[in-house]
Computed example of a mutant assay.
Amino acid sequence: MLTPDKNGTLLTSIENKIATVQFGHPASNSFPRVLLDRLTNELSYLSDNEEVSVIILKSEGTGAFCAGASFDELLAVSTIEEGTRFFTGFANLINAMRTCKKIIIGRIHGKAVGGGVGIIAACDYALASQESSIKLSELAIGIGPFVIEPAVSRKIGKIAMSEITLATHEWKTASWALQKGFYAKVLDTIEELDLEIEAFSKKIAAYNPEALFEMKKIFWDGTSHWNKLLKERAAISGKLVLSDFTKNALIK
């Protein structure tokens, strides 16, 4: 399905049991709330689609993989309820990814910031290019990576999470992310990345779907409380985004 450009694009194709879901937005593949909801709904649909065994999640273009939350929408927030509702979009997406019955493979071709880092962390397996640096800059604008923290910490641990969270000005290289377990493999070029994605997804698609589902439940064991936790975290961000500090930082 294809969404209007002003809200970004979402395109899904299915071939040989492999669903490829591509999202995009003119602002460095950032996420307005409507695109978050569409991606969440699409993954929920594919979760129950018997014609799908594995999902590849990718973004369009050759620039950033994902710039996180839409700054325009953050600036437009005027009440705690609006702020909480916006950040709940990321909470819903991460929860949909972890409860999806299909293995989700992330194709990370470029840089990711903020919520984009959380989306990668919620993938079951992430393959990246050397250009796929990551950064959490939320504290610099007066909020914090509250909603995505559980997913990122699950992948790289609390110590590395504190390092990337506090060093808001630093891009952590793809090699750093690989060393911390954030990426499963880092390829030198986009061409090599796509070949690896194709080969790996074909192997996964050939496995017993029931076994994959049971294995995924084990991967995400101990996260059932995230439905409540991530919504609570969204409320924290929803409150902080109204601060003068954040409003001024977003305008700069």
Rank of each mutant, 00 (worst) to 15 (best):
5 D>A: 11
5 D>V: 14
11 L>W: 10
11 L>F: 13
11 L>E: 13
14 I>Q: 01
15 E>W: 00
20 T>Q: 15
21 V>G: 02
22 Q>W: 13
23 F>E: 02
25 H>G: 07
30 S>T: 11
32 P>H: 01
35 L>E: 07
38 R>T: 03
39 L>N: 03
42 E>S: 12
42 E>Q: 15
45 Y>S: 08
48 D>G: 14
57 L>S: 13
63 G>Y: 14
68 G>K: 05
72 D>I: 07
78 S>E: 03
88 T>G: 06
88 T>A: 04
90 F>Y: 15
94 I>M: 04
94 I>T: 01
103 I>E: 01
109 H>E: 01
119 I>C: 08
124 D>C: 03
129 S>K: 05
132 S>E: 02
138 E>G: 01
139 L>M: 15
141 I>D: 07
155 K>H: 06
157 G>M: 08
159 I>K: 15
160 A>L: 02
161 M>Y: 11
168 T>I: 01
169 H>W: 12
169 H>S: 05
173 T>F: 14
181 G>Q: 11
183 Y>W: 15
184 A>K: 10
185 K>W: 07
185 K>F: 09
189 T>A: 12
190 I>V: 14
190 I>F: 13
191 E>M: 08
194 D>G: 10
194 D>F: 15
209 P>W: 04
211 A>S: 03
212 L>M: 01
216 K>N: 01
218 I>M: 05
218 I>F: 11
223 T>H: 13
230 L>V: 09
233 R>D: 10
233 R>V: 07
237 S>G: 13
240 L>W: 04
244 D>Y: 12
244 D>R: 14
245 F>S: 12
247 K>T: 03
250 L>P: 08
